[in-house]
Design a protein around this nucleic acid. Structure first.
Length: 273
DNA sequence: CGGGCGGCCTGGAGGC
DNA sequence: TGCCTCCAGGCCGCCC
């Protein structure tokens, strides 16, 4: 569920709570996530101090002492929240970590599409999950020319191309639709039909929309909450996503929803061509 | 190989 | 009230 802006928001929240804290206790209540959690994980974490928390695409990177790393992907319904131990444990709280200030970090994930594993600084870039990631939208070398090198000659629909993590890392279905709405391009357009200029406008819009969503602390469409279990607010600023049947904020036409593969796409039929 | 599709899970919404 | 189907923000593997 969470895309780049949600993960960025979670990482910022976690960093403020976790940096400098030592892990004193680790409990795994349900190891069966996307992959079964390594039984050695609690032993790996126990006693280690958390140095920092940062984001890599849609992954949460918890940096520990001695270049050790605890990596998370939240799948579609994962939450990483910092709570007081008084908070009753919820159904689907799969991992509970106690810190040296007695506060807790909990991983909650009803659909169990998430990933949690132990790794290290030197191994991180070589993990199968991370090694093939494309550029982050905030990478200085991400620009129109880079994106055009992928759209040129590709028969894929532009919405699907924007979702390809090996091209741009961090965009999911909500933001792919929002980005295209802002530049007036229909999600169904075949990439090779887009001019270099249009692709440059799409590329420029990507970090713009990501920044805006980060300022609103992400989109709480359904499951997403930040590190303090609070809602984001960008759902109030969406132009097309999940607005089928509602009026376009610009021209008052009716927003359409279509099925594209397994996933919905949304657009304004008069603003986007 | 590029590109499309189904499967993995649970839960919430809506139809009957 | 329940039972059914559909849908969900991701990712991976299989197939043509």
């Amino acid at each position: 569920m969470p895309e780049l802006p949600e993960i960025e928001t979670i990482c910022r929240g976690l960093r403020s709570h976790l940096a400098g804290r030592r892990i004193t206790r680790v409990e795994i209540f349900e190891p069966r996530l996307r992959h079964v959690i390594d039984p050695g994980l609690p032993g790996f974490l126990r006693g280690k101090t958390i140095i920092d928390v940062d984001r890599r695409a849609k992954y949460v990177v918890i940096r520990l002492e001695n270049k050790n790393i605890w990596l998370f992907h939240l799948g579609m319904s994962g939450k990483l929240i910092h709570v007081s131990p008084n908070m009753p444990r919820q159904k689907h709280d799969h991992i509970v970590v106690t810190l040296d200030n007695l506060q807790e970090l909990r991983y909650h994930d009803p659909r169990r599409f998430g990933l949690s594993l132990a790794t290290s600084e030197p191994e991180l870039d070589h993990l199968p999950q991370l090694r093939d990631l494309g550029l982050d939208p905030f990478d200085p070398s991400f620009n129109g020319q880079y994106l055009y090198s992928f759209t040129r000659g590709s028969r894929r629909r532009i919405r699907d191309l924007l979702l390809d993590q090996q091209i741009i890392a961090g965009i999911g279905n909500i933001y792919a639709n929002e980005i295209l709405s802002r530049v007036g391009v229909r999600p169904t357009v075949r990439s090779f039909r887009l001019t270099r200029e249009t692709v440059a406008r799409i590329a420029a819009m990507i970090p713009t929309v990501m920044n805006e969503a980060i300022r609103w602390c992400g989109t709480s469409f359904s499951d997403y909450r930040d590190a303090d279990d609070k809602f984001g607010e960008f759902q109030n600023h969406l132009r097309v996503y999940d607005r089928a049947g509602e009026r376009c904020r610009k021209c008052a036409s009716t927003i359409k929803r279509i099925a594209m593969g397994n996933r919905s796409a949304f657009y304004c039929p008069s603003c986007q061509s």
